[in-house]
Write a protein that binds this DNA or RNA. Structure first.
Length: 425
RNA sequence: GGAUGGGUGGCCGAGUGGACGAAGGCGGCAGUCUUGAAAACUGCUGUACCCUUACGGGUACCCUGGGUUCGAAUCCCAGCCCAUCCGCCA
């Protein structure tokens, strides 16, 4: 959520930003309503002040004057209530518009309405292999090596669910260990998180449960929802807290399951593990001072690159275009891994993504910090980034490391946790 | 799931329906004293929002939401959360 005062003072810039992001929020209307709301607020406060003054007199007033004073106070309260109600109605309307306005965008973020405008920033040291045998995709590899059971998953929970089997199970655990180890060594505090969170926390992080277009599974008769990412729970971890500036940045990494309905996603590349309703993910998160967040985004991106270089998977990093940033991100880098089995001769597919949300999430989650000797508090900045999303990492891993004989080499970095150097039928 | 006791400022803790944004203490900050430190003493010490160029002023907030009242931390109703004990359980 953007700050209202900011919107009022920078209406033109906010409007332009909405345009760049393909968002049709009515900024003029918001400005108009907010100006009216201010008037009503002042009015209501003034009536209330007068009523308080009368009420204070009643205790000391002689008995014969009390009824008259009571009547006056009562009238003032009624006037206050009326003004207050009008104020609240305006406030509600403003909030509805305000909630739909996306974050501002980094001046360097490429402007464009969708991912076609994404700007490639760098490529991995590790280059795509030249295969001298017919390349299989992860579904076929998995079938030969008995790593997945999609039919079983569908039987139990419907299409989009799956069982991992045999070495794929070890691979999932190994990938988690590998990512967590690297992040812990970098100074993150590791956590496991709830896989459910309340609707308020989801809203605070910028996720909208229970709409027709929602990506979120909700639990009936409760305000709990299955999380789409640990970003939700870790972001919510400090909701409503005021931190002291010296403790920032706070960096947390967590592993959780991620649940996504993928509503409306049918038809897009969805074979196998690419687009599933549940997967496991190791997530990075940071609460920072405003002046630390740009640097932290670079660092998160650097860590993601290091993780995939370590897995010997070719990738590229793109600076995400304004129209593809989603609501909360100020700037976002996607890391796209080379997937040799995708398309006719291999394609890049998104495997991780890291965003600087500046104070956009913090404002709704109400996470603040206080600087010693300074009056008041300010909102922290939040950042999130995928360390490893297991399902997509597994696609890239299997497809890039496949061998002519149908086996798959395990990259050096994972061997300590798997206990073998190749997966064979 | 059953029983009981609780939710007040950074923390502890008081609070006859008007004096309460809230005693007292601790902690923190500033000062006096001291060669320095400690102790002692003095003062200050919540947050958000609104009005104001400023000085300053105002409104709200004592778990949450309703209600009673001219007036609620205080009374009433509902809910949430926490603690302890019992049962059940990976």
């Amino acid at each position: 959520m953007l700050d209202r005062k900011y919107i009022l003072e920078n209406a033109a810039a906010v409007k332009e930003n909405c345009l760049n992001r393909g968002n049709d929020s009515d900024i003029d209307q918001l400005v108009h309503l907010e100006n009216r709301r201010r008037v009503k607020m002042t009015e209501s406060q003034d009536f209330n002040r007068q009523a308080n003054e009368k009420s204070k007199l009643i205790g000391k007033a002689p008995a014969e004057e009390r009824e008259a004073l009571k009547e006056q106070a009562r009238t003032l309260r009624e006037q206050k209530d009326t003004a207050q109600k009008e104020h609240d109605a305006l406030d509600q309307q403003i909030l509805e518009i305000q909630n739909r306005i996306p974050n501002m965008s980094h001046p360097a973020a490429p402007i464009g309405i969708d991912d076609k405008a994404n700007l490639e920033l760098r490529k991995s040291d590790c280059q795509p292999r030249e295969f001298d045998f017919p390349v299989l995709d992860h579904v076929d590899l998995g079938s030969q090596l008995d790593l997945f059971d999609f039919e079983g998953g569908a039987r139990v929970a419907g299409s989009g669910f799956y069982f991992l089997k045999n070495d794929a199970v070890l691979l999932e655990l190994a990938l988690q260990q590998y990512a967590l180890r690297l992040l812990i060594d970098d100074g993150f505090t590791p956590v496991t998180t709830p896989d459910l969170a309340t609707t308020e926390i989801l809203n605070g992080t910028g996720y909208i449960p229970r709409g027709p277009e929602t990506q979120i599974y909700s639990i009936e008769n409760s305000n709990l929802n299955l999380v789409a990412t640990a970003e939700i729970t870790i972001g919510g971890l400090l909701a409503g807290q005021t931190l002291t500036a010296e403790t920032l940045p706070v960096r947390i990494c967590g592993t959780s399951h991620c649940f996504r309905t993928e509503a409306g996603a049918h038809g897009k590349a969805s074979r196998g593990l690419y687009r599933v309703h549940q997967f496991t993910k190791v997530e990075m998160f940071a609460f920072t001072l405003p002046e630390q967040s740009e640097q932290m985004l670079e660092h998160f991106c650097e860590l993601e690159c290091r993780l995939f270089e370590g897995l010997e998977i070719p990738f590229r990093v793109v600076d995400t275009a304004t129209g593809d940033l989603g609501g909360p991100a100020y700037r976002k880098y996607d890391l796209e891994a080379w997937m040799p089995g995708r398309g006719t001769s291999g394609e890049y597919g998104e495997v991780t993504s890291t965003s600087n949300c500046t104070d956009f999430q913090a404002r709704r989650l109400n996470v603040r910090y206080k600087t010693k000797g300074e009056k008041g508090t300010r909102f922290v900045h939040t950042l999130n980034g995928t360390a490893i999303a297991i399902s997509r990492a597994m696609i890239a891993l299997l497809e890039n490391h496949q061998q002519a004989d149908g086996s798959v080499n395990i990259p050096e970095a994972l061997r300590p946790w798997i206990g073998k150097d190749r997966i064979e039928p």
